[in-house]
Design a protein around this nucleic acid. Structure first.
Length: 850
RNA sequence: GCCUCUGUAGCUCAAUGGAAGAGCACCUCCGUCCUAAGGAGUUGGUUGGGGGUUCGAGUCCCUCCAGGGGCACCA
């Protein structure tokens, strides 16, 4: 029926069939296992942020794991032994809330979801090492959370203190600062209130400097956006502590300022109304003053954070009828209490310099306080050179009157009204005045941080129990290491409803224990740990899953860690990454790891949107991953994720075409099936043009993958397939060796994006599975060279001629060729040539005299 | 308000300071009993606007416009 002239019957590309065909083969082959101790390949650790098992996988997971898998598969093709594990961040509120709602144990709900996600990931063909999974909710994981807690406790890095903490009235639990977004609970979006409670903290502020400084190591391999966010969050600033005497008080008061140069411009002092100092200062005042202060304090405390943070809010405050003394001038400064000064930053008190600080200026204008300019910003300086614009009329310079125009002068300048410091530049004055204060014992250089210690205790059930026993006679007693883990008791019979105290407190059999120290009756700590503790070190546990003698084996850490490439959403740009970085430094100090940063490189993938907005059930724009997989096949979805754009950009599902991806895969697949030559054909006899395209691709793709330009790789692959098709249909034909070569390269490259299709092509081309372990072929450099290139000849920048020349032509020959061109001669006419720019072999430009 | 990134074909993106390109989509044609798959081909641009540096600017500088992100009483 078929003869030479009729088209070959079109083969049917059936994604469902090839998925069913290859999945069991791979399960059998275990191509991604990393358990061979004799493996001599160099190592790479590629890690995707592990998922929270809140249901089946969704489009966001599909994107993240598609992109992470490109990287993992790529490094295998480059000859690396790639560790690419997966686990579950399985503790936390959603499981507990779901359990309450459905009357189930969080355990069952969590593990059911894990099973579902696991089977979806397998079908999705993510190249995970399935022998290295972990679940943070399992006792053999959280035992080591508890162990770490005890280690931090030993080092004074885990401690309990009473403080005003963020409290979510809906979830009935405390929250870390990091979990409060715009004054609202990160999880449930309800307004957060402040509560005075005794809670457990990790001393992350002790590491603040290192957490900032070590970010420099990550410059270039982490998104600069994330580095900025980390720096902002830690919020290091430097300046000076200045000691002010207080009239009628024995003890002086320290304030912190970043602008010691403006000390002569201080016209009043402000203390935080909720700081102990404020209460003390009014204690001896009139009844009327105390009443006014108490009313103000009550008002401030009643404010939600969201109200306090409103920047356009008018300044409020109360004059405390007391005075401080400027240590350099002896000037009396009235002391006010105002809520724009925070009790828990610096010393809870400031010197106010309204001329040079916008907040102080707003306050001064509101309460008619004096404003004195001490830095003349009309004399700005860079280094030693004044930069007043040349010819500027000094009379025309703007008046220095912040009181009138409401704008504080924050820029550089020279000091005025500052006694012996007049004439110094701002930066110079900062040094000089700080030094003057230090030598007379009135101050010292100081640093401050926005970062606060990490509040880790939670009054909820579904988390790691804190391994501390409270004994009436011995106090806080750590659970001895050999008694770990402190297992979470069954939820059965416990009321998990949030009520402000941990549900564990009601587990009588569990909470009451003998004190490990004195043997007397004692109680376990009933709080559980923030789940960010779990995820702060999980990347190390993957190296030693199943080891019940240690959290991780330092020798394995030496071998694999730190993570070479971490992949995850930008939503974790602050919280998770900061905590993992902190924990790594603690482990470094303990001598357990030899590195100080956990993730050498970070890739943030964007989100998957639908028609411009985030997908959600309530919006009714939810695209179900399982539907997409059923309709288009796994490979088409993975390819769509990679092709949609740069990984860090959001993908709008309304803008992409999974059907188009499937069409391309079918084309590629058919090309492989059209190949008629045998695997041992001699490449060099193949079509030269196609071979050049193939080898260009081989040469370019690695660099593109390594710079995460997956979309460009896919576009290049499409070009390659189109070119191959052309040779098959209207060129040298399907038997040409170049066609086979191109098809093989396509199969190997497609393994990155579409592993099922790639495997099936590989089989059609006559090879055994699995294509995932086939090495990337080196490009043949000699094929990349063009035998001739087009040189552009310009006259005065306008293209006048094009010349076909040898790629290695020298400047002189190219110039004389160009000079000989008729169109050049015509364009130059009788004008004189002034300059000739030669950039062989691509360009000659004759510039004429004008 | 401050800082920052990005504006190139309908969409997604390329282009060491040297000819403005690719993929997808669109359109036309071939093919087919019909439809679709499949194949061939053609369109498509003031590189957000303006100014500057340069022999030469998408690329460097200034400015404006638009969008994204971050920070926003942390002294």
């Amino acid at each position: 029926m078929t003869d030479a002239t009729s088209p070959r019957p079109t083969l049917k590309y059936d994604p469902a069939a090839i998925q069913a065909k290859w999945l069991p083969v791979w399960e059998e082959l275990r191509p991604f296992a990393t358990d061979d101790p004799d493996d001599k390949r160099p190592r790479k650790y590629v890690l995707d942020m592990f998922p929270y098992p809140s249901g089946d996988l969704h489009m966001g997971h599909a994107e993240a794991y598609a992109l992470g898998d490109v990287i993992a598969r790529y490094w295998r093709q480059q000859g690396f032994n790639v560790l690419h594990p997966i686990g579950w961040d399985a503790f936390g509120l959603p499981a507990e809330n779901a359990a309450i709602k459905r009357g189930l144990d969080p355990r069952g709900w969590t593990y059911d979801n894990i099973e579902q996600q696991k089977s979806s990931m397998r079908r999705y063909a993510a190249s995970f090492d399935w022998d290295r999974t972990l679940v943070t909710a399992s006792p053999d994981y959280y035992k080591w959370n508890q162990w770490l807690f005890l280690k931090l406790h030993e080092r004074g890095l885990a401690y309990r203190k009473a403080s005003l903490v963020n409290w979510c009235p809906y979830d009935q639990t405390v929250l870390a600062n990091e979990q409060v977004i715009d004054g609202r609970c990160e999880r449930c979006d309800n307004l957060v209130v402040k509560k005075d409670l005794t809670q457990w903290f990790f001393g992350i502020t002790k590491y603040a400097d290192r957490l900032v400084d070590d970010l420099n190591q990550l410059e270039g391999t982490w998104p600069s956006k994330v580095l900025t966010m980390q720096r902002n969050w830690i919020g290091r600033s430097s300046g000076a502590d200045v000691i002010f005497a207080i009239e009628g008080r024995d003890e002086p008061v320290s304030i912190y300022t970043t602008r010691p140069d403006t000390l002569y411009g201080a016209t009043f002092m402000v203390v935080a109304p909720d700081a102990p100092l404020a209460a003390e200062l009014v204690a001896e005042g009139s009844d009327e003053l105390r009443e006014r202060f108490d009313a103000y304090l009550a008002e401030v405390k009643a404010q939600s954070d969201i109200e306090r943070l409103a920047t356009d809010k008018e300044k409020t405050g109360v004059f405390l009828e007391r005075y401080a003394v400027n240590p350099l001038t002896g000037e009396r400064l009235p002391i006010w209490a105002a809520d724009y000064v925070l009790a828990d930053y610096g010393h809870g008190a400031i010197m106010a310099v309204p001329a040079h600080d916008q907040r102080d200026l707003d306050f001064a204008r509101r309460f008619d306080l004096p404003v004195r300019v001490v830095v003349d910003v009309n004399q700005p300086v860079t280094g030693m050179i004044p930069v007043i614009p040349e010819g500027a009329d000094l009379e025309d310079l703007p008046e220095l009157d912040p009181l009138a125009d409401g704008k504080a002068l924050t820029g550089p300048g020279r000091l005025i009204n500052s006694g012996p410091f007049n004439g110094l530049s701002k930066n110079n004055a900062i040094t000089k005045i700080t030094e003057a204060l230090r030598s007379s014992g009135l101050g010292a250089p100081a640093k401050n941080y926005r970062l606060r210690d990490w509040l880790i205790s939670r009054q909820r059930y579904w988390g790691t129990p804190i391994p501390i026993i409270h004994c009436p006679s011995c106090g806080e007693v750590p659970v001895p290491e050999d008694q770990l883990p402190v297992e979470l008791p069954s939820a059965e019979g416990l009321d998990l409803q949030p009520k402000g105290t941990s549900p564990l407190g009601a587990a009588e059999d569990w909470i009451n224990v003998d004190c490990p120290s004195c043997g007397g009756p004692a109680k376990r700590d009933s709080d559980t740990m923030d789940t960010f503790v779990d995820s702060s070190w999980y990347f190390l546990r993957f190296l030693s899953v199943g080891d019940d003698t240690q959290a991780f084996d330092p020798k394995q850490a030496e071998k694999w860690a730190p993570v070479d490439q971490y992949i995850g959403g930008v939503t974790h740009a602050i919280l998770h990454l900061l905590y993992a970085r902190f924990m790594t430094k603690v482990l470094f100090d303990m001598g357990l790891v030899s590195f100080t940063e956990p993730f050498s490189a970070l890739l943030n993938q964007g989100m998957v949107l639908m028609a411009g907005s985030a997908m959600s059930k309530s919006r009714g724009n939810l695209v179900k991953l399982s539907d997409q997989l059923d309709e288009h096949g796994v490979d088409a979805i993975r390819l769509t994720m990679a092709f949609a754009g740069p990984p860090e950009d959001d993908i709008d599902w309304a803008d992409v075409s999974p059907a188009g991806s499937a069409k391309f895969l079918a084309r590629a697949w058919r090309v492989a099936h059209d190949v008629t030559s045998a695997p041992d054909v001699v490449w060099k006899n193949g079509d030269a043009k196609l071979r050049r395209i193939t080898h260009r691709f081989l040469a370019d793709a690695p660099g593109l993958v390594e710079s995460f330009k997956f979309n460009v790789v896919v576009a290049r692959l499409m070009e390659l397939v189109n070119a191959t098709r052309k040779v098959i249909d209207s060129g040298a034909g399907p038997a040409d060796p170049a066609v086979r070569e191109a098809a093989e390269v396509t199969a190997v490259a497609l393994n990155l994006f579409a592993p099922y299709t790639a495997e099936d092509m590989w089989e059609a081309l006559g090879y055994e599975p699995t294509v995932a372990l086939v090495q990337w072929r080196k490009a043949d450099r000699t094929l990349l060279r063009e035998e001739s290139v087009t040189a552009v000849v310009q006259v005065d920048g306008k293209v006048r001629d094009r010349l076909e020349v040898a790629p290695n032509i020298d400047d002189a020959s190219l110039e004389s060729l160009a000079r000989a061109s008729a169109s050049v001669v015509k364009a130059v006419g009788d004008k004189e040539i002034a300059t000739v720019v030669v950039r062989s072999p691509k360009l000659v430009n004759f510039v004429t005299k004008r």
